[in-house]
Design a binder for these strands. Structure first.
Lengths: 351, 351
DNA sequence: ATCACTTGTGGGAGCGCTCCCACAGTGCCT
DNA sequence: AGGCACTGTGGGAGCGCTCCCACAAGTGAT
């Protein structure tokens, strides 16, 4: 080790005690300064801060976690790999939002995969061990036991995409209903009259809401809502193909399709092209997600964009609030615990 | 607090001491069992394991970290947001690989963003505080100070995409040279004779290697390598457009383009279409990355696929080895510290 | 029988914090 | 003058582990 890694006096990083000695105060006082307690005189605070700076003191997280019984860490739980969550733009955008907001804090972000059974088990252990102060849950199935486990363990959690109308966890979502509406209203404004809809998996609440938006937009415009114009997809390209085929069989004269995802729109486009329908001349096409696929499709796909990065940001906000509120057990009702963000329609050549 | 957080017997989770009492052994013995020490008799081990199971004991990470001076955590450092890393398929695929391999261990994964200066500063603190046992570095610029900081702090690290031939850190990479070669060889085999190349940013080592592959493939096939057929891009769509325009101006008769990324290929395609060149009839197009864009492009884009998930896996492998080897300071030379994985050409309609 | 190892085990010390109690000092009301 | 709050501070206790020393018991050589 000679002259190698020998930073600092005794070979290690400075401790609270050393800072205290340097500043000529007690250990408790330094702790108070570090943690921003107001019960410290200005002179003392200045002295301590000087000592901290001189010594390059950085608190030891492990010691703090042990003593204070908190971790200063939150987990982002990533469900099964097949999930839509891994698709662009979801994953990276949301992570970016979370990361941006996180950098304002001292929290660290743990990424936990809960795909396989083994991973799920490990996750349960993690949570049972209270290794994180809170959990961010993304794209959770309606029947996932995780949310219940979380509330049972009394671990603050926020979910993106509520599982239902009756979601009990604090949630952040984009306005799927409004997104569906805007897609259809746009098509109507373009003079389309027979508008079909390819839905996502209907056990996904957001997909259901898009259908609601589709229906209401038609109804409000004085159109009859025909169930035969709605075909269920599953967010996959193949699902989009199948649904499009069905719809064309039932309604060869349809002049517009609103797909619940860009990927399904891509599938629909293939079928439309195969049967010689031109886009947008014969059939207008609108997708959802505003992913890379939409931008690069031929023709470029009109698509509903969700503010995913913003969603990530808000999720973290909510979670931090939950964590902070854990102490004073004020019953704050449900106020502010549901955030719904507006979507935006990105109009391109396909419609 | 009454009846609030009162899970468990004495309000908390079982400790080592409680397990020891239950098993009728000492604290040290339980610790040995938990940590898999061989110096425990079989009978004792069984008794302890039973007690652990009965009590649902889970070690307290913070206490362990404090006492043992290790964290059982590694960090994945994500560089600036503008990076290619955030693009599909990189991010999710690599994370999936890392996650898969991680679930075999007790390690946890921290995601750290190092985009803004503030984040970089925080990162430096993290590292200085030795809050992680090792670091995974992805898509690092040639002039990034991070790798040096890491080796200075003696924190094990593995880099994906070495910064240069002389990379000092253990690294995992895909065979960019071979990928470039295979793209060009494919185009040659299709009878193309005037093959242009749109490069990525040449301060990215991998992009440089693709150029090398391009050149060598042409040379080995007896073709003259003309520098005017190589135009620098920057991994962006706009860069691809610009480069394609240049190339067409110089070589109106080119019959194939190998782009260093799918996104640049998309830009190139736009230009080709604008000037009325048909793909693949007039000009064959090959991309790199095999992203969603490639699959959904019109026509679908032939592209070089990198085994990114596998890269993630191998990175973690290497890192865990590095961490484990930290103790016996054996000088193991450079053996095995560089992993290069084969790429595969996904042939589609564009070529 | 003694000595020297080896194997298995118990438990003290200590990791670097936070929490909280104790206490000196100050100011204000009775 | 005494009483009583409040502010600022020091430092003990303890969080739940790991590390390591001590030691009992067993084994084989002397």
């Amino acid at each position: 080790m000679a002259g190698h890694g020998a930073r600092g006096r005794s070979g290690g990083r400075p401790t609270l005690e050393e800072v205290a000695a340097r500043a000529g105060v007690g250990r408790g006082t330094v702790s108070r300064v570090i943690n921003g307690s107001p019960r410290v005189s200005d002179t003392t605070r200045a002295a301590v801060e000087a000592a901290v700076a001189e010594l390059g003191y950085v608190p030891n997280t492990a010691a703090r976690a042990l003593a204070a019984n908190r971790t200063d860490a939150i987990a982002l739980v990533v469900p099964e790999p097949e999930t839509r969550f891994f698709a662009e733009p979801y994953f990276s955008d949301m992570l970016r939002g979370v990361g941006a907001e996180l950098s304002e804090t001292e929290m660290q972000l743990l990424l936990i995969f809960a795909g396989s059974d083994r991973e799920r088990q490990r996750l349960a252990q993690y949570l049972a061990a209270h290794r994180v102060d809170g959990v961010l849950l993304v794209s959770v199935h309606a029947d996932d036991p995780l949310p219940d486990l979380l509330s049972q363990l009394e671990i603050p959690a926020v979910i993106s995409g509520p599982r239902s109308e009756a979601e009990t966890l604090p949630s952040v979502d984009s306005d799927n209903y409004g997104g569906g509406r805007s897609a259809v209203e746009h098509l109507l404004s373009r003079g389309r009259t027979l508008i079909a809809h390819i839905t996502g998996r209907l056990d996904v609440y957001g997909a259901q809401r898009r259908v609601d938006g589709y229906r209401d937009a038609l109804r409000d415009a004085g159109h009859e809502v025909r169930e035969s114009l709605v075909e269920q997809g599953d967010f996959t390209e193949e699902g989009g193909r199948r649904a499009m085929t069905e719809l064309l069989a039932r309604h060869p004269d349809l002049d517009a399709v609103f797909a619940g995802s860009d990927v399904m729109a891509a599938g629909a486009r293939q079928v439309l092209r195969e049967v010689g329908r031109r886009i947008p001349d014969d059939v207008a096409l609108v997708g959802y997600d505003d992913s890379a696929i939409a931008r690069h499709m031929d023709p470029p796909l009109t698509s509903v964009r969700q503010p995913i990065e913003e969603m990530g940001r808000r999720m973290l906000d909510l979670l931090l609030t939950e964590i902070a509120d854990r102490r004073p057990a004020v019953s704050r009702g449900l106020e502010r615990r549901r955030v719904v963000l507006a979507t935006e329609l990105e109009v391109r050549a396909s419609s």
